[in-house]
Design a protein around this nucleic acid. Structure first.
Lengths: 227, 227
DNA sequence: CACCATAGGTGTACGGCGTACACTCGTCAA
DNA sequence: TTGACGAGTGTACGCCGTACACCTATGGTG
């Protein structure tokens, strides 16, 4: 077998899809900060510049990765109860985001919305409208949800991790936070170590918002502002 | 005047505070992406490595910048109505964040909470507790607020910018979004161009959440979960 | 068949980044 | 006088994204 034949048989040609797949896998495995064009090329057994035949630049690569992730979200389930429909889909989005922890930051960093995100938001707006919310209310509701629509928990800092024993000095400086941490500590649930039950917190906020929206819908809320 | 005297008189010695101040100013002026150690050093008329006598590395510089910004938030006003107190402080935080548009991303990207952020959160937790919310409820409420506590609007994409005339093809592909954009377009308010009234949207979501919290407080809500 | 345009992969190179490390030099205590 | 020390310097290394010129196999056209 000549070298050319060997190369011929073993090497499937690159294409945009394979590049994006590999990028997502690499980000999953090593984190978004470790994702460089050079590293990705190496993973694909190719010289870095080869990637540029399939994506214009790194920004476009990130766009494609964001779209790939958003495309993993389940389609909306049918049903008469709009809160259930929306809730279910958002929790699906959250599961996707948990599979790809880097994705939240990437999606947020896109300057404009990518097609898949637009499609998702459009479909989500449709769910609200189908549920009987006015266009006016739906608009503000979508804003109020913000990135929570895509399952971001948008915590201020990462509550996971080792966390270890609480710093005693910290309790003195930040008494209220210490008190909160104490209440969180002595209930079991899905939180084994020290942290909070992120899933509970997410659903708590989500349901609070959805209930608020439904209440506004029932009372025929309309934005009072006009020129 | 000798060269030494000239140097002596014109050059105030660097210190951590001056470095942080300059970094914030530079980020305000040119954006966070344009902030590099080299560029910052140049701004301070100093060689890049000089900065490392005052900050350990770039991450610590960003930590310091985050703390500086959070430190600009007004202290809590006193008052019997906890919703007013919290609301006022969050709107102050939002004003600060609008002055430093890069700050949201920087704060979010910190791996652990910085001291100023901790102090802010602690004080905020205190406001909830003073308002009569239980430690339990306060805990979940803080999570539900998430980064909104610091005034992040956490929109999915930037609604500012030129935006221009709406793409007609876009309306066909995303009919619900087009409908929402239409409702947003034909009301005046503080939105002159095409975009939404971000301040209205922010306060809408904020008040919805605060009202929800107060409602839970009144009905003596407690998290039902236990081991 | 000969030809050549084209698409995909290569190699080299540039400018920018964060920062390690060894240095100089002015100040000040002993 | 000396010697430690803190602040600023200079050089260098290994990353990064990517412009640009190049090679080469492929496939349509005369």
């Amino acid at each position: 077998m000549t070298r050319q034949e060997a190369r011929h048989t073993q090497r499937i040609p690159l294409n945009r899809d394979r590049v994006l797949r590999a990028a997502v896998a690499l980000a999953d495995a090593t984190g978004i900060d470790a994702l460089s064009m050079r590293r990705l090329a190496q993973e694909l057994d190719v010289v870095p510049m080869a990637l540029y035949k399939h994506v214009a630049n790194k920004e476009e690569l990130l766009d494609g990765m964001a779209d790939a992730v958003v495309g993993e979200i389940d389609p909306p389930a049918a049903g008469p109860d709009w809160q259930r429909v929306v809730r279910g889909r958002i929790l699906s989005a959250r599961r996707v985001l948990l599979r790809h922890p880097w994705a939240a930051r990437v999606i947020e960093s896109r300057t404009g919305p990518t097609p898949a995100v637009l499609a998702y938001l459009d479909s989500m707006a449709g769910s609200f409208r189908d549920g009987g919310l006015s266009a006016d209310l739906t608009h503000h509701v979508m804003h109020a949800m913000g990135s929570r629509l895509l399952g971001f928990s948008q915590e201020l800092f990462d509550t996971s991790g080792p966390s270890g024993p609480p710093d005693p000095g910290l309790a003195a400086r930040y008494p209220h936070i210490a008190e909160l941490a104490a209440t969180a500590a002595h209930d079991g649930g899905s939180t084994v170590g020290g942290g909070c039950d992120d899933q509970f917190e997410f659903e708590f906020a989500l349901d609070l918002l959805l209930d608020g929206f439904e209440s506004l819908r029932r009372q025929g809320w309309t934005s009072a502002r006009k020129a």
